[in-house]
Design a binder for these strands. Structure first.
Length: 492
RNA sequence: CGGGAGGUAGUUCAGCCCGGUAGAAUACCUGGUUUGGGACCAGGGGGUCGCAGGUUCGAAUCCUGUCCUCCCGACCA
């Protein structure tokens, strides 16, 4: 089968879908809006998860697990949060099926098995967790609580897209409780830094750290911090969020503690999360018309070796050499795969592993053995070189680092070129329509103007960058005075 | 949720208008020749035509319903 990939220029959306499906990351399923994450895609997620998990633990967090279901009465306790998610909740109303009396072999919902109280399938877990924390916290000595959970959540989205927006998705959600506001804000910012560190240094994807406007804030938060990335089509993607929840949930669930002077106060909270959506961002930011390009640090397979041989004798000689190469690479903790399957010829394998985004391909044949070399091909640049087998493993190790860095540099150069100042409304629209990317523009600071801009230009304020430069200016829409530029973009 | 397109072999699709024994390419299996950018020859297996009803002597084809997918929009922290 020839797996033709639609080019980005021809149809960007289709290109994206082709990469996910033909690259073997995921499949559609029989369930509306839900995808199957295939082994290759899940291996990628596992690598991301393992790195993040270690980062969380290194910053003092521990893992726990809370229920999938949230009783409706708990869910509605924090009103802002509940209202924000109400429209996209799946709800369990019954607990039993029974044989359909009219059609043999079919089942119907047993009307007698209606739940006293409906259960909401979590779209996020603040409610069930804060209901639990109430029982864990009495004194300042019980704080802070630094808990993370790896889980699935369900948000009944109108329109879904593989990885970027699915009805069910995998994520982690950190939920912390603190004695002081200052400590909670420090935690919120610390976790934002962890996300930025991960996305930039492991996924090779540059991000802008900032805070959301009240309009775009997480329902129930006092402040939402975010990291924003830029995709190759010039649209922005929210890659992670970290929320300062104030005392909102503590008040909703009556979680108080005694401080060291025996004074009662509500607990301060944060929550933060990243999801499988990151995979969508990874795909869109780095890949090309030949397939995926995965950053070496998280690629399931970092190096693939393809043998080229005529006959059994040559194959045996190559096997012997390759086995020693594999041993050397494994000693350096490099994830290597030897594809000596005989049902595909080398050319087919080359194309296949390019599609799957394996960072480095080693091709080795009799000709190479005679010269004590191997052909090394980089996925990111498509560059091929002949490299001596002596010291090959060190060369590969260095090359993996070079590729990782090159991918980041390339993405960053593209991102930096696509942050443009706009001083007038016409200029603003012009940039969004033609150049695309982030537009840095003055805004009068009102939710009404933000809403109006969204309606007219289909662009939202992605964030107000941290440590944003302060400068006098006038709002691009209303002409009212403004103290700083904010980052707008069309977004996923 | 609105508009458009689609669901037939593992995959990509033809057949449908005009009802009458389900096709092609590719993939797969066997044997052989091959192997430095998606190999070739010969033989072979594989589909309740998304699902459920209806019309009919007969339905992939006509009708109704329903599920799923894609694209555009609305929605979306």
């Amino acid at each position: 089968m020839s797996k033709e990939i639609t080019s980005r220029q021809q149809d960007y959306s289709q290109w994206y879908n082709d990469l996910i499906l033909k690259g073997g990351l995921a499949d559609y399923s029989a369930v509306r809006g839900c995808m199957v994450i295939k082994p290759y895609g899940f291996a990628l997620w596992e690598n991301m998860r393992d790195v993040l998990d270690k980062m969380f633990k290194d910053t003092g967090h521990v893992n726990a697990y809370f229920p999938l279901f949230v009783p409706k009465s708990l869910f509605e306790a924090e009103e802002t949060n509940a209202e924000g998610f109400a429209k996209e909740c799946a709800i369990v109303t019954h607990y039993r099926l029974k044989a359909d009396p009219n059609i043999k072999g079919k089942l119907i919902v047993d009307p007698e098995a209606k739940l006293e109280e409906e259960l909401v399938v979590r779209p996020t877990s603040e409610a069930i967790i804060w209901n639990t924390y109430k029982g864990w916290i009495q004194s300042y000595r019980d704080l802070p609580i630094l808990v993370n959970q790896w889980a699935n959540v369900v948000r009944w989205e109108m329109r879904t897209r593989l990885f970027l927006r699915t009805a069910e998705f995998l994520w982690q959600e950190g939920h912390t409780a603190h004695a002081t506001k200052e400590e909670a804000i420090i935690e919120t910012e610390k976790m934002l830094d962890v996300y930025a560190d991960f996305v930039e240094n492991w996924m090779a994807l540059p991000v802008i750290k900032g805070i959301k406007t009240p309009n775009e804030r997480f329902a129930g938060a006092d402040e939402t911090y975010c990291i924003e990335a830029l995709m190759q089509d010039g649209k922005a993607l929210q890659a992670g969020t970290s929320h300062f929840l104030g005392q909102n949930f503590a008040k909703a669930f009556d979680v108080k503690f005694s401080d060291m002077h025996n004074k009662l106060d509500y607990v301060w909270a944060t929550s933060w999360g990243v999801s499988t959506r990151l995979i969508g961002g990874l795909v869109m930011a780095h890949s090309d018309d030949d397939g995926l390009i995965l950053p070496p640090k998280i690629a399931p397979t970092q190096v693939v070796i393809v043998p080229i041989y005529k006959g059994e004798t040559e194959k045996n000689l190559i096997d012997e050499k390759v086995n020693s190469i594999i041993q050397q690479l494994k000693q350096l903790n490099i994830r290597v795969k030897y594809d000596d399957s005989d049902n595909a010829r080398p050319g087919w394998k080359f194309a296949e592993y390019e599609m799957k985004g394996v960072p480095i391909r080693i091709a080795i044949g009799a000709r190479d053995l005679a010269n004590n070399v191997a052909e090394i091909a980089r996925r990111d640049t498509k560059e091929k070189t002949s490299v001596s087998l002596d010291g090959l493993s060190n060369h590969i190790q260095n090359l993996l680092q070079t590729i990782q860095q090159n991918m980041f540099d390339k993405a960053k150069a593209y991102r930096d070129e696509h942050i443009t100042n706009a001083n007038t409304w016409d200029e603003f629209l012009q940039i969004l329509d033609n150049k695309t990317g982030f537009v840095n523009a003055h805004w009068d600071g009102t939710p009404e103007t933000e809403e109006k801009i969204k309606e007219l230009a289909k662009a939202t304020i992605r964030c107000i960058p941290l440590n944003n430069k302060q400068e006098e200016g006038i709002c691009i829409l209303t002409g009212k005075p403004s103290k700083q530029r904010v980052l707008f973009a069309r977004a996923y």
